[in-house]
Amino acid sequence: MQVTLKIFRYNPEDNRKKHFDTFTVEAEPTDRILDLLERIKGTEDGTLGFRRACAHGVCGSDAIRINGVNRLACKVLVQDLKSRKVTIEPILGLPIEKDLIVDMEPFFDHYRSVMPYFVNDDPPPSKERLQSPEERERFDDTTKCILCAACSTSCPSFWVNDKYVGPAAIVNAHRFIFDSRDQAAAERLEILNEQFGVFRCHTIFNCTDACPRDIQVTQAIGEVKKAIIDRNLE
């Protein structure tokens, strides 16, 4: 079958404005959108810019907007799409560097701001820090994040306000806030209780829909909000 891809183009080194180029390629129903992008880059236009690494939904490099929704290019098959006409754009809310490539640094700045690492000042035990299966289950969902930015860049609050930490940062804070071995939950909750923290979330659910790992992002954000309230009421 033939698939027509309308792809966003921008090159800061030439004088053309941001625009769309259209390509028609042969495709199998089981081809991924990433396969089509590589086919275009390999046979039609070598200047097309996009990120990819593992191509198996693990690295999170190839988050793009496919027909207006955030998806990983390596996880969407041609047969998953309702139309044979596909619009491909870079994810929103981050500066575009070239074509489908965005500057991820503001996203990682927010990620780093929530202390997304294990903190425990106690001396390490001789073997390991033990945790029950129930305690591990508490934050299991949010361990799945691959930092693709699909959630944050689907969030209207993130689009319009570059100070808002965004869903991905909150998800990664959640992963440690509810870890029974960690000791910095209160610090993370205070960070997320600031003006551009967790209460900028208006429960739109775009993030949950966009997550390629099926993380219940909005629920995780709600749990962090509740943890802040519980802590303030203690």
């Binding site: 806030i177 939950a185 209160a186 209780n193 600031e194 003006q195 923290g197 943890a227 309230i229 303030n232």
Partner: peptide, 20 residues
């Protein structure tokens, strides 16, 4: 959820109005 040096809970406008 344990914590080391526990920062005091803060009651800022966004938090209070979200609850309100």
């Amino acid at each position: 959820m344990r914590s080391r040096a526990m920062p005091k809970p803060s009651w800022n406008l966004d938090y209070m109005m979200w609850v309100f």
